[in-house]
Amino acid sequence: MSKAIEIAHLCKNYGRHRGIIDVSFEVEKGDIFGFIGPNGAGKSTTIRSMLGFLRIDSGSIRILGMDSEREQEEILKRVGYMPSEAWFYPSMRVRDVIRYAADVRGMDCREEAERICSILKVDTTKRIRELSLGNRKKVSIVCAMQHRPKLFIFDEPTSGLDPLIQKRFFDLIDGYVAAGATCLLSTHVLSEVNRYCRHAAIMREGRLTMLDSPDIDDEAFLKFYEEEEVLS
């Protein structure tokens, strides 16, 4: 089994609002896969369907060889997910949130969590309500990485992070991928796709198109967004 993600003919409709239409793609194990597209194109809907947050209308999703509906718990054990909006319980301290995520997984992740916290300069003594978006994102990264998952799913992970932390974040991903993990990276940042991704796909108007190469120039990249504007 060499595929980390296998999605076939996935459709999700929100009634009057368009969701995603006949989305199919595969991600090989060990890949860093760029997932790009304008806001509202369907990237988050695809990701949320993969994680079982949304009930799909048709099609199939297999993650690490497991069915996303029947084996959701097993999949989530092996996945590290970082949502675009990193929210936690405001009254909790950072260390308690990190510990909570590890405890629910039934794992002792203290060593790895401490390592990531020191790399990303996370202040674990603060309460969540005291943190900026960037600092909440760092907590989210720790929660997604501390259990050393087989598959990372990041939804716009670097927005709000300073350049140094962004670099360290990608260094961490490189390390995990070198050790056998796979990464799906949803982003609007072209340089991230060019520099870190090995394969990429773009979503527009709920449909997905695989790109021949993740090496896209600025003009071609912006064209995807302009075409979306024209279409809409």
Binding site: L76, V79, Y81, E85, V104, S140
Partner: peptide, 14 residues
């Protein structure tokens, strides 16, 4: 409402 669902429901618990 508090957007904490994506954190909670991404943990391996049904």
């Amino acid at each position: 409402e508090g957007h904490t669902g994506e954190f909670l429901y991404s943990l391996p618990v049904s």
